[in-house]
Amino acid sequence: MTVQITAPGFWQSEFAVRFRRNRNAVAGSIIVAFVVLVAVFGPFVAPYAYDDTDLLGTWAEPSREHLLGGDQLGRDILSRLIVGARVSLLVAISVLSITLAVGILMGMIAGYFGGWADGLIMRTSDIIFAFPELIFAILVAAVMGPSKLTVIVSLSIVWWPGIARLTRALVLQLRNELYVDAAIACGTGPFTILFRHLLPNIVAPLIVRASIGVGFIVMAEATLSFLGIGVQEPEPSWGGMIRDGLVGLRTDPYLALFGSMALGLAIIGFNLLGDGLRDLLDPKIRDR
């Protein structure tokens, strides 16, 4: 008789079981998975090129040729929504990577070393927090001029202080733990302690924070593009498409309505997933 010993796989782990019981998390991850799949593979199967204009087919009604209709230049709305998903996610991923890298580093330095570095970093974040988010982004946009890079830079400037504050608070909680003292006693350098010993212990709340942030970043990018200071033509962005669509809402509502549906659904998906992850990983963190 053989006894089979298997370590419980991921799908049997406590986390996975609780995840599957959380309806919000499941619904959110299905929507997010769909949006990510569309963003990654969609452009290869999109029926038309996103900048393929057809001046005879401007504001075309949905039909077999153009499933969701055409926009003001006769470009296929479906194809542009698909490419728009990719643009939106690329901006979100860029902003998220920059804010996480900068925010975690700054938060760790502030929390671990304290002193003037802490003061400098925290006062800087106070100043950024003193501006309403979008208004700071508009200030940056006015200086840099409208572009995709402007969106990434301005949203990164607005977002890193939140990550830094959270990281700092988490590091402050842990820095007097015995294993940190032990590492110091062994002669371990401060950055090894920070990244090897502390980072793994604070990663869960940071994941929660990041996942909640994605929905807001997607919304902020769309808002800036809607106002015309974000992603520029001919590159499609959901925000810009809705702006163009609102002009023709009275007679040709498809662009505005389908664009709004895509954007709304994507953000709902990210927020459902973020909320679900928060419930699962860190019940202490509440809204922003």
């Binding site: 919304m219 925000g239 309505l257 709004s260 953000i267 709902i268």
Partner: peptide, 18 residues
């Protein structure tokens, strides 16, 4: 409520104005 927080105001405007 999740929808209310998630849907950007200009997307909501498109639906409501329409």
């Amino acid at each position: 409520l999740i929808a209310g927080i998630s849907i950007p105001n200009f997307a909501l405007s498109a639906f409501l104005v329409f």
